[in-house]
Nucleic acid binder design. Structure first.
Length: 665
DNA sequence: AGCGAGCCGTAC
DNA sequence: GACGTACGGCTCGCTG
């Protein structure tokens, strides 16, 4: 019986909308997990393609390494997207995360890449094939680069008097770094474009051993599948594999939606930053040479020269402390910020920009096996929240680049409120039989008496319940002699409590607090002690894990994803973070079921504790109703406190989202 | 020239 | 044993 389809393709690139498969490979696996057929075919071979379409439709389970990517490629090659709606998906990268001991995964040398896994777990070294392929592509690319140079020479644009090193820099800039530096080379703009239109850059498609390479990949994927799939059952990870499987198609839809970009705003911001950068340079007065912000060792040396005392590092914390003594540090702080914006965000967006249906979009991908906990990872998640003000007064707000798409009217953001704290609270309830009182009271009137619409504490009925301020609570326990009416309370002591709460939740101890909060050791110790008094339940949770790691080889998170680890310190975080991740995966599948017959709603983005949607212009009453229903679906009930979400929306751009109050404001 | 380690800065 | 999970860009040193 044809039960599993091992599924892979070789493609013209990594853009999930514009690129396409030129080669398909598949293997068919029966119920005994034996490989009964293996095939490779060219994407323009119509006969093979229709046979393949039949297999895709009829075989219930698709198996691949990073399978979402290959789904995109099949869709781009004309396969009906509906084929992929109701399949079971087994991603071998996800299998790796579920079956490999998590302490091994936590090792910095661990890699989820197919070839690396094959070497480690199948003993098959396919590195040679890949090396050969890369070497060939590298040769082709360097030929292409030289051809571009020749094109400029032919057009009389190339300065023939340049030295070799100058030529290399120039050609590199034009060929590799164009989006970063094009303002310097306007005379090449038109001919560069013409050249690339007539001579597209080489891809794997132009490499001679690609077919052998592709066949190897199918064999490796099959090998990992056969090795690990039975272990999913043995290790009791079936439920998690299914949850991940059900999130695959919703994420495919999310990825294909992309994010609409206000290109003009990006370019304006780019100009403003370049203008500022051209005004500001870091010069080492001793050598008269210019330094870039990435030359950390040389910069540290320069700071020490200017300060006359040793400096810890060249990072922004160190700079902040020495700016009064070191002009170079002052300049570096400004340039570092500008460079980050130009190199990472602006150039990053321009490199990914895809013009499609008269809109500029960027498409990101979510890696379902990128993390040890089960979180999704993506290259989109780290766009700055806070705006940046330049010295000339320009405000750069990266989130203002992302706008409502043309066919839509709204972007909605459903954001879980203090998700991980609520999960921490749930853990205390599980191990103690009742939740940590202080934590629970931060979210609900736990153990309170209701009189009218007010609540009073059970142990002290004269005291009305208000949501516990967890940050003040840590601070109060840490600094029992400081009064709440102290003028420094809010901005200093409570602030320390807040920062300590975050750090300690992530596992920090006193020495790290000294660094992060810039406090002395006794203060750090007081904060840790304050935290422990404030959250006795969390301390008990830590002790519980400590015992569990000796009695069992794994601990399941709230959604029953199991972590095979004996590392108490990391487990304490994984059990919280991973529970949140799995709740989100579950919700993606549930909400997909809700919106699949409402095409005016589209998935847009997801970042750990939030799901973003676009919505078309629909009647207001319908909008209010559906938003409320999505909010209810997002809510995840737990035994102690539920995980609920706040809603924000905008009709313009990401940076202007505002609270949704049940209706259009 | 290619690669990887290390550093830095951003997100949740 | 001593702050969790990621991503991307840059520099520098090693390797072949």
């Amino acid at each position: 019986m044809k039960k599993y389809l091992i599924y892979d393709s070789e493609t013209t690139g990594l853009n999930i909308i514009k690129d396409r498969a030129f080669l398909f490979q598949y293997g068919i696996v029966d119920e005994n997990l034996d490989l009964i057929e293996i095939e490779t075919f060219d994407s323009n071979d119509a006969t093979s393609k229709s046979k393949y379409a039949y297999y895709l439709k009829t075989i219930p389970t698709l198996v691949g390494h990073n399978i979402k990517f290959d789904i995109h490629m099949a869709i781009n090659d004309g396969f009906d997207i509906d084929i992929f709606k109701d399949k079971n998906y087994i991603d071998t990268a996800v299998l790796a995360r579920l079956v490999i001991n998590h302490d091994k995964q936590a090792d910095s040398t661990f890699s989820i890449a197919l070839k690396k896994l094959a070497v480690r777990y199948l003993g098959i070294d396919a590195a040679d094939e890949e090396k050969k392929l890369r070497a060939e592509l590298s040769r082709l690319t360097s030929d292409h680069k030289l051809k571009m140079k020749q094109h400029f020479i032919d057009k009389g644009l190339w300065d023939m008097s340049l030295k070799t090193t100058e030529e290399t820099i120039l050609l590199n800039d034009i060929y590799n770094n164009w989006n970063k530096v094009y303002h310097k080379y306007s005379k090449f703009m038109v001919e560069r474009k013409t050249f690339l239109r007539l001579n597209p850059a080489p891809t794997y498609e132009n490499c001679t051993n690609i077919k052998t390479y592709g066949e190897t990949d199918i064999k490796l994927t099959y090998g990992l599948f056969k090795l690990w799939y039975p272990q999913v059952v043995r290790l009791d990870q079936v439920e998690t594999l299914m949850r991940v499987s059900k999130a695959v198609f919703p994420l495919v839809l999310m990825e294909r939606k992309g994010l609409s970009v206000d290109i003009q705003r990006v370019l304006n911001d780019r100009n403003a930053i370049i203008k500022e950068l051209s005004k500001t340079k870091i010069i080492d007065p001793r050598t008269k040479t210019e330094l870039s912000v990435g030359q950390h060792a040389k910069l540290k040396d320069l700071y020490e020269f200017e300060c006359g005392f040793p400096v810890e590092s060249a990072d922004k914390n160190a700079r902040a402390m020495i700016e009064q003594y070191s002009p170079a540090a002052r300049t570096a702080s400004y340039i570092a910020k500008l460079s980050k914006y130009l190199n990472t965000y602006i150039t990053g967006v321009l490199n990914k920009l895809t013009y499609i249906n008269s809109e500029y979009k960027i498409f990101t991908q979510y890696n379902m096996a990128g993390t040890i906990t089960g979180r999704l990872s993506s290259d989109f998640q780290q766009f700055p929240k806070e705006p940046l003000e330049l010295n000339d007064g320009t405000i750069i707000n990266i989130r203002s680049w992302f706008i409502v798409p043309k066919k839509d009217k709204y972007m909605f953001y459903f954001d879980y409120a203090q998700m991980e704290l609520r999960i921490q609270c749930e853990w205390t309830a599980i191990i103690l039989g009742e939740p940590d009182k202080n934590m629970a009271r931060a979210f609900m009137p736990y153990k309170c008496i209701q009189i009218g619409d007010k609540y009073y504490l059970e142990e002290n009925p004269a005291m009305e319940w208000h949501t516990t301020d967890l940050h003040s609570m840590t601070a109060q326990h840490a600094f029992p002699n400081v009064s709440l009416s102290d003028p420094l309370w809010k901005d200093h002591y409570r602030q320390l409590g807040k920062r300590a709460n975050f750090a300690i939740n992530y596992g920090a101890a006193a020495p790290k607090l000294v660094q992060a909060l810039k406090v002395d050791f006794p203060t750090a110790q007081a904060l840790v002690a304050g935290y422990k008094k404030a959250f006795a339940g969390v301390v008990a949770f830590g002790k519980w894990i400590n015992q569990r790691v000796y009695s069992t080889d794994n601990i399941p998170n709230l959604m029953l994803r199991r972590y095979y680890s004996r590392n108490k310190h990391q487990l304490q975080n994984w059990l919280v973070q991973g529970s949140g991740a799995d709740i989100l995966l579950l919700k993606l599948a549930e909400i997909y079921e809700y919106i699949k017959d409402k095409p005016h709603w589209n998935f847009m983005i997801s970042v750990h504790d939030e799901v973003g949607f676009t919505c078309e212009d629909i009647p207001e009453a319908q909008l209010s109703k559906e938003v409320t229903e999505i909010q209810a679906l997002m809510c995840h009930k737990l035994s102690a406190v539920d995980i609920i979400c706040d809603i924000e929306y905008t009709t313009t751009k990401w940076s202007e989202k505002i609270d949704w109050k049940g209706h259009i404001n």
